[in-house]
Design a protein around this nucleic acid. Sequence first.
DNA 1: AATCGCAGCAACCGCTCCAGA
DNA 2: CTCTGGAGCGGTTGCTGCGAT
Length: 266
Amino acid sequence: MVRAPCCEKMGLKKGPWAPEEDQILISYIQQHGHGNWRALPKQAGLLRCGKSCRLRWTNYLRPDIKRGNFSKEEEETIIKLHELLGNRWSTIAARLPGRTDNEIKNVWHTHLKKKLKNYQNTRQHSITVPNAPSQSQSMKSNFPTDHQQGRIECEPVSPQQSSSEFSSVTEASVLTNNMVIKDEQMDTLAETCPVIDESFWSEDLSAANSSLQSDICSVNDELQLQFPLSPVRENVKEYTFNVDNGMDFWYNLFIRAGGLPELPEF
DNA sequence: AATCGCAGCAACCGCTCCAGA
DNA sequence: CTCTGGAGCGGTTGCTGCGAT
């Protein structure tokens, strides 16, 4: 379906908003709500398309918009969520009250990408755990075929707000010898973590889930493989998963794909 | 003082999603 | 089930301000 650009009609203004336009939009929404964005500009007497109005309102004029620089905590939250979710700016924004997806996206591209390297350098991939859920403390890692036996243990590294879905982001690494990996050791990860079967990469998410479910988790854990993240090293792919055992812990999982040319996205 | 280059940010564009007809 | 159109999302653009030369 081919749709004409929303501002193609002659007479619709584009570009920066004038203060008068802002005032008209604010007044109208305060009185009537936004309802149908497409109809709004005509009803409000604005020479803008509905899309432009919606963007201006949601990214700039909304009363609950938080102004000013991002705090260190907010930046760290963005970095962590981006690590988990990728470029899902709206999802990330939903976890930062008063911040918009556009703002977060801009901050990411202008500031945080540069900081990320430093951030990653300070992270430690830890794998032993006093407080992790007992069912997860020792998870088998009998990968699908043709691989070595391994074992992972996980430790919550950064407990956050308990109500959050990501209440505790946890680092874990799959290794053959149950060893702690630090970032400087990641270069050797391709040699140390288990090789998995090629079919693992080509299967869809649910198939991968059930594969990991049967091969990694203890009997009563329900594992949900979530987001394939950017490869941390050649042939090593990082996944986020959680173990639905009531504790709401999230883990990162490093898996080596043995010599595969392309790792398809799920 | 003038020019240039870059960073930051607001806004646009094109696409997908999804609800309703 | 298919089609349509509104809303939302993520990528990109381009303007503006500021510091360096």
